[in-house]
Design a protein around this nucleic acid. Sequence first.
DNA 1: CGTCGATGATAAGTATTTGTTTCATCTAAG
DNA 2: CTTAGATGAAACAAATACTTATCATCGACG
Lengths: 232, 232
Amino acid sequence: MKQILIIDDDEKLGELLTQYLSRYEMQVHVAMTPSRGFEMIKKLKPDLLILDVMLPEKDGFEVCREIRAKSSIYGQLPILMLTAHAEVTDRIVGLELGADDYLPKPFEPRELVARIHNILRRTGDDSTLRDIKPINGIEVDTSRREVKLDGNVLDLTTMEYELLILFMQYPNKTFTRDELMNRLRGIDAELFSRAVDTLVSRLRHKLGDTSKTPRFIKTVWGRGYTFIGEQI
Amino acid sequence: MKQILIIDDDEKLGELLTQYLSRYEMQVHVAMTPSRGFEMIKKLKPDLLILDVMLPEKDGFEVCREIRAKSSIYGQLPILMLTAHAEVTDRIVGLELGADDYLPKPFEPRELVARIHNILRRTGDDSTLRDIKPINGIEVDTSRREVKLDGNVLDLTTMEYELLILFMQYPNKTFTRDELMNRLRGIDAELFSRAVDTLVSRLRHKLGDTSKTPRFIKTVWGRGYTFIGEQI
DNA sequence: CGTCGATGATAAGTATTTGTTTCATCTAAG
DNA sequence: CTTAGATGAAACAAATACTTATCATCGACG
């Protein structure tokens, strides 16, 4: 379970994200002020910091700067900045404050999740989202978003790619359709449709995995799907 | 398949949820009274209890309290309370009755599903069952729904898997066919046939357990079946 | 706006699982 | 040893779940 710390004085947002991110094996903690934030970083050692720009005491830029300055204390804590307006983003990037990413408000929760995943993947944080090991002829370079099957580059859509990544992170784990939907879309969606099946079908097709004895994605009847890790 | 027990005297709601939740790999059982509820908890060992506040005999708060008090009997059964009005929710939370969540009536079925998922995710492994100790060469990883026999992954169907899990949770316990069916198929499953025998036979076959001196599943003549624990 | 690609929904077709029947075989008890 | 009842397993039937083609929808992009 990833620990996410949010420094933001908007209580509502905190609650929202707490609930929302819990679906993604993330536990959210909220600090309303920077000083409380620093405290909690030391205590909690979160895996990611989400930092609002508009804060009491001092603004988010300043907080970010401090954390980077005292890297001996705070380590390479990945930081995602929430900016009030898109224009400011240039400033952040330009000033090289050391944030790992930024996201202009208002944002789609789904977008946030995607960013978080990206950051955690980039920064090489182990516990959940490590680099993806080549399995059975599939190599994934997450930094380039490139997938190779037996040496040939595959052209995958966003969903297909995310699905593959998810599968490869947990080889041999059986996912229910529900789980897959939640992880990929972030909604406790009504699942009357075969959306997941369709997606799997498309990915299988691109992986050339259409035979009856699948090489990659196995159907677990009455349950879901499994990405095959070792050989059976 | 998750087993959900509802204690609620509103017949309509029970039916509705039975139908609705069945789409989400949940099997719903309804107890109209608390006393019947307690009975069914023991018999059924549900994965989640949905508890209405307005009940005959005693109210839902009381039921919740009792269950938590007798945790040795009922374990850490997750409880979702249905409250008639939003205002009461404060009371529930404030009193720390031990419910895991609450939901004010009337509610959207979809919202209920989301809550259920959240609770199940929070309170334990998503795949419902506690850890299962390796026995006699069989290892089960419930979070991955993976079964290994002497190191080799087994390909089990839903029923076979559920049966194995059930057996391994109670090694050396002799189950009657009735018990097995109740646990696997729901409480009022009436079978006019030898479905259990067939199921056992199939599982035995996949376990390579067909000899006359079984390694895993022993037939207790005139009674039922026993999963053999450590020593023979 | 109109096109294109990606994704979601639907439904017909197919596959697998599960329940039932049946019969050979087995067990316990006299 | 015999028998009535119980069990194992094969074969078939019914129920259930999955696949995929096709169409609809949505959003990005010019």
